[in-house]
Simulated scan of single mutants.
Amino acid sequence: MKPVVSALNAWSCVVISLFAIVILSVLGSLYSVHESDPLRHQPAQRPGPHKAYSNNHAYTGSEDEPEDGPAVAASIYTAVIVYAGFFVFCGFQAFLHMRNSRGGAISLH
C-alpha cells in the first residue's frame, strides 16, 4: 500500500493532532467538571438548572455564559474524536513512509 500524503505532512499531522487531543480534552473536562467547595466535599448549590457546572469566568469570559456547560463539553469531545481520527490516519501514513523507506514490508539485507 502506498502513502497518500507526504512524510512531512503525515508527521506534522500526527504532532498537531496529538497536541489538539490533549488540549481539547483538558478544555472539555473544564466545562464538564462540577464546582465544589475548596475542600471538594460536595458540589456547590446554586439556583438554576445549569449553575452546578463549572463555567469559570477565567476561561469563559463571563460568569453567565455558556448557559449549558455540558453541551459545550460534548461538542469539544466531538472535536477530540475527529482529531483522534486524524491522528490514526496520519500515523498510518507515517508508518507507510517508514516501511517504504526500508524497502517494503520484507527486505532481504
Results as ranks from 00 to 15, higher is better:
M1S: 15
K2P: 09
V4C: 00
V4E: 08
V5F: 00
S6C: 14
S6E: 14
S6P: 08
L8N: 15
L8Y: 05
L8D: 13
L8T: 13
N9D: 07
A10H: 00
A10V: 05
W11C: 03
W11T: 05
W11A: 06
V14C: 12
V15H: 10
I16S: 06
I16H: 01
I16D: 03
S17W: 00
S17M: 00
F19V: 13
A20W: 03
I21R: 00
I21P: 01
I21M: 11
V22K: 03
I23V: 12
L24W: 01
L24G: 10
S25D: 05
S25A: 10
V26W: 00
V26P: 00
V26D: 11
L27T: 04
L27I: 11
S29G: 12
L30K: 06
S32N: 09
H34E: 14
H34I: 08
S36R: 04
P38K: 04
P38V: 07
L39R: 12
L39W: 07
L39T: 08
R40M: 12
Q42G: 03
Q42M: 02
A44I: 14
A44L: 13
Q45S: 13
R46D: 11
R46G: 01
P47E: 10
G48V: 02
P49S: 11
K51N: 15
K51H: 10
Y53W: 15
Y53E: 02
S54P: 01
N55Q: 08
N55S: 07
H57A: 13
G61I: 00
G61C: 08
G61H: 04
E65R: 02
P66V: 03
E67A: 11
G69M: 10
G69Y: 05
G69K: 00
P70M: 05
A71R: 13
V72C: 11
A73M: 03
A74L: 02
S75A: 10
I76Q: 06
I76T: 06
T78W: 14
T78A: 14
A79V: 12
V82C: 15
Y83N: 13
A84V: 13
G85S: 09
F89Y: 12
F89I: 12
C90S: 11
C90L: 05
G91T: 02
G91F: 00
Q93I: 01
L96H: 06
H97P: 09
H97K: 10
M98D: 05
M98G: 15
S101N: 15
S101D: 08
R102Y: 00
R102L: 04
G103A: 07
G103C: 03
A105G: 03
I106N: 07
S107Q: 08
L108G: 03
L108S: 14
H109P: 04
